[in-house]
Structure formats: C-alpha cells, structure tokens
C-alpha cells in the first residue's frame, strides 16, 4: 500500500508542477487573444480594436489582472473542477475539450488496437523464426514501415482510398446528418483511415518491442529447460513465453500511449479529423489561453495516468520491475 501511495503522490506532484509550468509557458508565447481579434477584423476589412475595446475585452476575459493573480484564480477554478472559459468558443473549456477528447480517445484506442493486433503476432512469429527467411522479410517490411514518415503514409492512404476510390470520407468524424441519426457504422467509416494510418505506423514499434523481448525470453534457461523436456513450440510460446512478455508490454504501454497521442495529432491533421490535435491548433492560433491550458492539463493527466496505471499493474504482478521502475 505504501508503494501505491508513493506512486500516486509522485504522479500528483508531477501533475501540479506541469500545470504551473503550462500556465507560464503559454504566456511566454508572444501575442494574445486580443491581437487575434484585432487581426481578424483588419484582415476582413474592418477597423482594428480601439483602446476602449481592448480594455473592455481584457476586463471581460479577466486578462487585465496581474499574471500571479491569474494563476491563483486558475488554481482556484481547477480546485472546483473548472477548466476555465474558452475565449474563442464562449463555452466552458471542459465542455469543448470533452467533445474533442472523445474523438481522439476513439482514434488512439482504435489505432493502438490495430498496432497491437498486427505488431504482436508478427513480433512473436519473427522471434520464433529468428534468423529464418520469414524473420528477415518481416524485419525488412517493418523497417520500411518504421522509416516511412507517418505523414506520407497517411497522405497516400487519403489519396487512394478517399479521393480515387472514394471508399472512405476525406474529412470529419461523422456524416452530415441530424443528431441521433449517426450510427456506429458511420463513425467507424470516418475513423477507418486515420486509425489504420496511426495503427500501421505504431505497429512497427510494437513489432520491434515484441520481437526483441521475445528473442530474449526464448533464450532464457527455463525456456531451454522446457524445450529439453520435449514441449512443442506452440506450447512453449503460449504457456511460458507469452506470460513473461505481458509485464514488459504493460510497462511499455504508457510509452506506446504517449506516442499514439502524438501520432493521433498528425492523423487528425491529414484527415481533418476533429480531435484534440485540431483543437490545440485552433486554440494556439487564437491564443485561447484557457482552452490551451485545459488541453495540456487533460493530456498531461492522461499520460500520467497511463504511466501510473502501468506502474501499479507492475507492482501488483511483482514482475521484478516494480521497485526499480
């Protein structure tokens, strides 16, 4: 229990530190929401914000207070579960983030599923056939996949399947329809290309992780003993090697999850998929400080949670990594 509590406390301390760092980092970026409003007005031919309008908006958004006071107000808001108010969307940030987070979660989950479903069996097969032609072919294919820029892969998929063949939509997360009439099939259809792109890109990471770990495991004494006892390859893999692989995979899960979020951002951009990546871009371009802080906080919390979950899981199974991790 003491180790659990220490891990949770460490994660919380990290979260608080990163929240404060995020708060100040965003303010280091030159410009602000008022510059964006003023620029948009001028670019569309209207007059820029006057001094009176600037003062009015500063008061309205609470930007007229000193930075320290803004930080205190922010922390007080967070204590009440309030992520702040989006200056761009004119809605509570939590409401906007929840809308976009849901889509990114689907994308990351489906992408990771594709990655694990392809990378795991191929990695095992490759390790089991180490040095044979199949291993060489898989290594070469995965190396090409790993070296291919994810942007290129996604763009090719977009042009072939969305533009040429028109099997899948080019953009969006759902069909244009009335609320309630959008079904799961439609959602999956919109998710297919971004998730496949993300999954294929991540699958090479999973493949290398699994193959290398499996090669180590298959060289262990207890595997050689099992083989000497006359156990077949399948039985050795399933009864001895796979259970040993599981903790390693779980330990790496947080890393995979973090990478998948990064990958999801590029997939969202290529496929105009409105997830957190696209939302971050909107918030950044419009200096929506409160929304950006909220997004960073949610992402940081998600990644820390995945690390925490992996650590707690490892301790629970006492896989020999727990204390040292």
């Amino acid at each position: 229990m003491k180790r659990y509590m220490a891990l949770v406390a460490r994660s919380l301390a990290l979260l608080v530190t990163l929240t404060v760092v995020n708060f100040f980092l965003i303010h280091l970026v030159p410009g602000g929401p008022l510059e964006v409003i003023s620029r948009a007005r001028v670019e569309s031919g209207a007059a820029p914000l006057s001094d009176a309008e600037r003062a009015m908006f500063c008061r309205y958004y609470g930007l007229d207070r000193p930075l320290g006071a803004q930080l205190l107000a922010y922390v007080a808001q967070l204590a009440h579960g309030d992520l702040g108010y989006s200056t761009f969307f004119r809605r509570p940030s939590s409401e906007i983030i929840a809308e976009y987070y849901k889509r990114t979660t689907w994308l990351v989950a489906t992408g990771l599923l594709v990655a694990v479903c392809t990378g795991l069996p191929l990695g095992i097969v490759s390790a089991a056939r180490r040095g044979k032609w199949l291993d060489s072919v898989l290594l070469a294919v995965e190396m090409i996949l790993h070296a291919t820029p994810p942007f290129l892969f996604a763009t090719v998929a977009l042009i072939v399947f969305a533009v040429k063949l028109q099997w899948f939509p080019l953009a969006g997360s759902e069909a244009i329809a009335d609320p309630g009439s959008v079904g799961l099939a439609d959602m999956l259809r919109h998710l297919a290309l971004p998730a496949l792109s993300l999954g294929v890109w991540e699958s090479s990471t999973v493949y290398y992780l699994v193959r290398n770990a499996m090669v180590d495991i298959l060289g262990e004494d207890y595997i050689r003993t099992a083989r000497a006892k006359g156990l077949g390859n399948h039985e050795i893999l399933i009864r001895h090697a796979l259970p040993a692989l599981l903790p390693m995979l779980l330990a790496r899960f947080a890393v995979l999850f973090g990478a998948a979020i990064g990958g999801a951002f590029f997939a969202e951009q290529v496929f105009s998929y409105p997830g957190l990546g696209q939302l971050s871009l909107i918030a950044f371009q419009n200096y929506d400080y409160l929304l950006l802080r909220g997004i960073f906080l949610v992402l940081t919390a998600s990644i820390l949670m995945s690390y925490l979950a992996a650590d707690l899981w490892l301790i629970r199974f006492d896989a020999g990594v727990g204390d040292g991790a």
């Binding site: 929401p33 409003i37 948009a40 670019e43 569309s44 031919g45 200056t87 761009f88 004119r90 419009n286």
Partner: peptide, 10 residues
C-alpha cells in the same frame, strides 16, 4: 452566432 468573438473575421 452574431456575437462570436471572431464574428468580425470575414
């Protein structure tokens, strides 16, 4: 919305 902060953005 008429009253979006970006409503002046064409």
């Amino acid at each position: 919305s008429v009253f979006a902060p970006v409503s002046h953005g064409g």
